[in-house]
Design a protein around this nucleic acid. Structure first.
Lengths: 205, 205
DNA sequence: AATACATTGTTGACACTGGCTACTTAAGGG
DNA sequence: CCCTTAAGTAGCCAGTGTCAACAATGTATT
């Protein structure tokens, strides 16, 4: 990590630098144009340098998408509340963190869910995506065990949860959650409806 | 509409043909690479011909996105049941038609929700997108009036509905609704949860 | 009917970008 | 001192959007 005014011939840690630069680009531009040359340019290296670390554009993209899922998971872990009293207390911060991740990294989030960007990679990618799904399943399972959640097939409940959050995230990214139509806090409102669908009639608010 | 072996110099209705060809392409390829030249090629005209009907690539794209929303609306109208007895009977076919539209036209659906593909167009595009939203609001409003739906702010309920359907559609397009994780009929299951969140406790199933 | 005009196509080219591939050059490690 | 690694330079090749000039066809006007 040398910061010498005249950079040394060898960058030292270009692989990481390229990934970081790419992530920065995806954070800034919603518009999804991603060129290797541009990444190299912004990383301050020649346009062919990345090829020493990534066999292919698709390879870089795939790795970035995976990292995206990892970071999403970190965001969710960080947002996890310690001793949630109600299901709402448990889910709300997670949902907010999820949507925030999407709106903070619009192009990255789209990339993560574009699939078929490498076929063979698809498997691993799906694994990581479905790992996020598992977090939700876990919460619901505990909720059912504790009796705060209706006894329904968990997959269906989790599908509803993931679908809702994913959908709200996408709509938010696309600027479609305009307040005039959808109210001031659409996510919270939607969550309320979801929670009423998940929770047992009695105890929940 | 002449089918003469040697096509006449003038296509006759190229504008429509270009749009139709483009829609075909978007229906086939999930992978979202869309070039004017390819459209022209497949439409059987020279690569510059489309410029007589569309000032710009963005213009064509914008028009196609709008048509996409129109067709989505038609699909929904066609799926509307006549005399639905329950809220579930009313919403299920609509939701299925919505998701089916997405999975049948993956690239088109993505295009419709990519926004910023023309800025100025964004307004009109959003109008049409939100028109779909209004369909949902209408159903919910009647449901509330009839007493089959909880009295909550409608925007929130509609946001939950749209978010859920949109999210499920996206997940389906991306092949993320794998049965092992998410069950055999994830949409129906998710709808059940949603409906339990929307409906009043007593009458609903 | 003949001619002018507007439409709608074709051809060809330009500018540019972008992925990728040699080949060359620096630097560090055995 | 050599050899591997990691960077730079140069360039190829394929596309793409777009424009300008030309050709065919239909339409209106005289």
């Amino acid at each position: 990590m040398q910061d010498a005014p005249s950079r040394p011939y060898h960058h030292g840690d270009l692989r990481r630098a390229v990934i970081e630069t790419a992530l920065d680009m995806l954070r800034e531009e919603k518009g999804w144009q991603f060129t290797l040359r541009e990444v190299a340019r912004r990383a301050g290296v020649s346009h062919a340098a990345p090829y020493k670390h990534f066999s292919d554009k698709a390879a870089l993209l795939a790795e970035i998408a995976m990292i995206g899922f990892d970071r999403l998971r970190e965001s969710l872990s960080a947002a996890k509340s310690e001793a949630p009293k109600t299901l709402r207390d448990e889910i709300t911060p997670l949902a907010r963190a999820y949507v925030a991740f999407g709106t903070d990294n619009p192009a990255l989030y789209r990339l993560m869910f574009s699939a078929e960007e490498g076929k063979a990679v698809g498997m691993h990618l799906n694994e990581r995506a479905l790992a996020v799904f598992d977090v939700l399943v876990e919460i619901l399972r505990r909720g059912q065990a504790a009796g705060s959640i209706r006894k329904r097939p968990i997959e269906g409940q989790a599908a509803a949860g993931w679908g809702l959050i994913h959908g709200m995230t996408m709509l938010a990214i696309d600027g479609l959650l305009v307040p005039e139509k959808v109210g001031s806090a659409p996510l919270d409102a939607a969550l309320s409806t979801l929670l009423e669908g998940l929770g047992n009639p009695a105890p929940q608010q």
